[in-house]
Simulated assay, not measured.
Amino acid sequence: MGNRLETSLTEDLLHALQEEHYVTIATVDAEKGGPSVSAVSWIYASDEKTLRLAVDQKSRMIRNVSEEPQAAVTVIAEGSTYTISGRVKVKKESLEKVPLKLSLLEMGIQEVKDVMFYGARLTNEPKFEKTYDEEAAVKLDNQVMEALKRS
C-alpha cells in the first residue's frame, strides 16, 4: 500500500491499539537534541485522535517530551508499518491502582502515515513474551491497561 496519509487512526489501527501492542516511540533527546527511541507495550488508543502510554516515572521520555513535545510512534499492524506523529504531554505524574511507579503520557495525533516500502506486506506482527513471573505479568498488564483506559 505504502505512504497512505491520514490525520487520525483508521478503524483497524484503533482496534489494534486498544490492546497491549509492541511499538517504538521516538522523542527528541533533551540533552543531546537528537532522536531517542524506546520500546513500549503499554499503549492504548482512547479514540482515533489520542494515544496513551504508561512509562516508568524515571523514563527519559518524560523529560524529553516536557522540553520538546513532538514525538513519533511506530507500530506494525494490519500487514504494514505506520508512523503516528503528534504532540505528547505528561497527563499524570502517577498512575493510580498500579503497583509500579508509572506516569501517563498522552499523544494528540496529528498524522498517521503508512511507511511500508513499496510492493510489500508484512505477514507476521512482532510478538513478545514477558520474562518474569507469568501470573504477575498478566496481573500487572491488566492493572496498567485499565489505568490507561480510565485516565
Results as ranks from 00 to 15, higher is better:
E67F: 03
F128G: 10
K58I: 03
M61D: 00
V40L: 15
E134H: 07
I84S: 00
E96I: 02
A54M: 10
S38Y: 15
K101I: 02
S103C: 00
S59C: 02
G34N: 10
A77G: 11
V88I: 02
T10W: 05
G108P: 00
K89A: 03
R121Y: 05
I25E: 00
Y118W: 15
L13E: 04
V28W: 04
K127N: 11
D114S: 06
V75H: 07
Q57Y: 02
T7C: 08
T10P: 06
G86M: 02
S41G: 10
T7K: 15
W42C: 12
E134N: 12
E68V: 03
L9P: 10
I76Y: 07
L102E: 06
S59I: 00
L104C: 04
V98E: 07
V75E: 07
E78V: 14
N64Q: 00
K113N: 12
A30C: 00
D114F: 06
K32L: 09
Y132H: 11
E125A: 13
E11V: 15
F117T: 07
E129P: 00
K101F: 12
T83F: 06
S94Y: 12
Y118M: 07
G86N: 02
A45L: 08
G119K: 02
I76E: 11
L14Y: 08
R60S: 14
A39D: 09
L14P: 05
L105M: 00
A120T: 11
I76R: 05
A30Y: 01
S85Y: 03
T83S: 14
E20I: 15
G33M: 04
T27I: 01
K113Y: 11
Q57E: 12
D133H: 13
F128R: 08
Y22H: 07
T74D: 01
S80Y: 06
V112T: 14
A77Q: 14
N64G: 01
Y44T: 02
S85R: 13
S66M: 05
S80F: 05
Q57L: 01
V112P: 03
L51C: 03
D47W: 07
A136Q: 10
E93D: 05
F128K: 05
V28K: 11
F117E: 08
A72S: 13
V90E: 08
S8I: 01
L122Y: 10
Q110A: 08
I84R: 00
E31P: 02
L9S: 13
K101L: 11
L17D: 05
V75P: 04
Q57W: 00
A137M: 13
L100C: 08
V73C: 14
K130R: 11
V112G: 06
E20Y: 10
K127L: 15
V112M: 09
T10D: 10
I43S: 06
S38T: 09
I76L: 12
T74F: 01
E48K: 15
K58L: 14
V73K: 05
K101R: 15
A71N: 01
D114G: 04
S80L: 04
D56Q: 14
V37P: 12
S46E: 13
I109F: 05
G79T: 15
K113M: 10
L102F: 15
A72W: 02
N124M: 13
R121Q: 09
T27R: 01
M107A: 03
